[in-house]
Amino acid sequence: MLDGLLDGYTRSLLIFAGINVIAAYSFYAPFKTGQVSLGQAGFMAVGAYASAVLTQKFGMPFAVALIFGGVVAGSIGVVVGFPALRIKGIYLLLLTLGFAEIISVIALSWDYVGGAQGFRNISFNPFTLEYVIGVIVVLLVFFARLERSSLGRAMDSIHQDETAAEVMGIDVVRIKLLAFGFGAGIAGLAGALYAHHATYMDSTTFSIMLAVEILMFVVVGGGSTYWGPLFGAAVLNAIPEFLRALREWLELVPVEWTNFYPVNRAYDFLHDFLDFENAKRLIAFGVILIVMMILRPDGLLTRDSLRWLRLPRWKVRHA
């Protein structure tokens, strides 16, 4: 469908950005009830390994494996979510972090899924981009509908004050568990899509740093609206590419324009500055994160800024 329009590099870039968007929504779902998880990378790993086992060892088509990956990760999410109900805040953060590490140890020591050599030769899915776009559209519609539904409002009220929500007759346990399991399921989808695009993974692919990046997408984009995760993941994935493009434009400037004294220094400085390998990219991310927490702790997009922007919304009935 999109074959003619995009070259391989752009395509791959869009796929990884899209998978990050999906992962950001997997963090957003439990976050809507106030649960902060550093285990989303672990659920991605569960979905990735489960789906890859299905396509490679049982010869199933990708569509089946994708759903299977989501369901397995979601079920494990519910299993982890049960004990997680008892704890909050940093305790939950540490619990989910511990869960993700255990998943990574299992991936490392279980030879059936490749063990230390990693899971190799996963069948490549040529339609990953179409799948990614499809999943994002479904998620966007779902969360847009959710925001104005009674379930969505119940989730918001749990986020704001759990005790008050319970007193109002909201089934806090059921909704928190649902949100946690659903988030894990979305992470599973992201993992399955990743595995069948990268075709290789090992126990370090889904690391704590990935979980931190996922958290960052939502925090930077804004965790209080459903546009936030999409926006955050898109912006943070676009920044390095944008700077790279700037550098390429800079190289198009004719040499004779810049090869005299003050300009050449400035040119070299700018050229070096825009050379964005991984360490510099991550340093910039870290600085952005700190500055964000000081200036806009609720993220770039909040409900107020959306109202100001008048982005499309489902009809509101004011009570």
Binding site: L215, N278, I283, V287, L289, I290, M293, P297
Partner: peptide, 17 residues
């Protein structure tokens, strides 16, 4: 959450520096 996330930011900066 804010101070937790800003110290995560600091973690990323220090490691990659």
């Amino acid at each position: 959450l804010a101070p937790l996330i800003s110290t995560i930011g600091l973690t990323i900066v220090l490691q990659n520096l």
